[in-house]
């Protein structure tokens, strides 16, 4: 009963939907205020979601209807599942085993693949270009993102998010060594979330809406929700991996601290996408491999040295 409550209501399914809609609002509001605009009212993301649910679903005749309909559901379920493995404001998560970092990575990569499948099988030209860009981009940001997060796991000497939380609670201030990794992962996360400067797969002025071009109604609502939840999961993951402090304090206080950490990461994301222009796909790939990957290697090297000296 407890587990069911955990999965379906709090902090599972229901909580994450509303939380991600709230996060979308905060992101849009900060973005607007940074641009000296008023921004949307608080219920805008929810209203958009309900509106899309009420709209007609259109499946292109030339598309493969099965794959076309499967993609959004696959994407949504995988990101929600990923959320269950991440400790939020305690050192424990619902599911945990040695190696769950890999599972979370895998579950976070699935939506990108789902976007590719959905876009490819919708057979629209714009969607196809968007899908191919989706995959091309995946090979660029995934490596620095994983290396950044794994460098932190390396220091904790574990493959489990839960044990990582335990390690950093036992060794406070160790997270300070991982700040470079945080920067790298945050920038790579923008690629995963398809936000400026890495919103190349859905660059509006080039390929309309990329993979999402042919989607409408309920399926578009799911896809948009997927992106929102991905943003929450991504920032929660970064909050846990790079700011793992205050995890075992009073639950109410811990929850507040958790919210603050997520808000901090969300505002950094909003700020970053305010001050840059969209890159071209070739520029994006060379940026990731020329700058982010070497820096991530440096972070790993630093952590290896630390492990050999401080933790002896």
């Amino acid at each position: 009963m407890g587990a069911l409550f955990y999965i379906l209501i709090f902090p599972g399914f229901l909580f994450i939907i509303f939380f991600s809609l709230a996060i979308e609002f905060i992101d849009r509001k900060i973005y607007a205020r940074l641009q000296n605009r008023v921004g949307p009212p608080w219920f805008q993301p929810l209203a958009d979601f309900i509106k899309l649910l009420a709209k007609e679903d259109i499946v292109p005749t030339a598309s493969n209807p099965k794959m076309f309909k499967l993609a959004p559901i696959l994407a949504l379920t995988s990101v929600i599942t990923a959320f269950l493995y991440i400790p939020l404001w305690k050192t424990g998560a619902l599911f945990s085993f040695n190696g769950d970092i890999i599972v979370v990575f895998y579950l976070l990569t699935l939506p990108t693949l789902a976007f590719f499948i959905g876009g490819w099988y919708s057979t629209s030209l714009y969607a196809r270009i968007g899908s191919v860009r989706c995959l091309t981009q995946l090979f660029a940001y995934e490596v620095p993102l994983f290396m950044g997060i794994l460098s932190s796991a390396l220091l904790a000497d574990t493959w489990s998010l839960k044990e990582m939380a335990v390690f950093y609670t036992q060794h406070p201030w160790f997270w300070m060594f991982n700040l470079l990794g945080f920067g790298i992962s945050l920038i790579s996360l923008l690629g995963k979330l398809e936000k400026v400067p890495f919103d190349i797969p859905e660059a509006e002025t080039e390929v309309v809406a990329g993979s999402f071009t042919e989607y409408s109604g309920r399926m578009l609502a799911y896809l948009r929700l997927t992106l929102d939840i991905e943003m929450v999961v991504g920032s929660v993951l970064l909050a846990l991996v790079f700011f793992p402090f205050g995890l075992n304090i009073n639950p109410a206080l811990g929850f507040m601290l958790f919210l603050l950490k997520v808000l901090f990461i969300i505002s950094l994301i909003s700020l970053l996408r305010t001050v840059v222009a969209r890159l071209r796909i070739d520029q994006m790939i060379s940026f990731c491999w020329k700058y982010l990957v070497p820096l991530a290697l440096l972070q790993i090297l630093v952590n290896l040295i630390l492990k050999g000296t401080l933790l002896k």
Binding site: A32, R33, L34, Q35, N36
Partner: peptide, 9 residues
């Protein structure tokens, strides 16, 4: 951009 936070929209 950061200055805009304190400005009226």
């Amino acid at each position: 951009v950061l200055g805009s936070i304190f400005k009226k929209p």
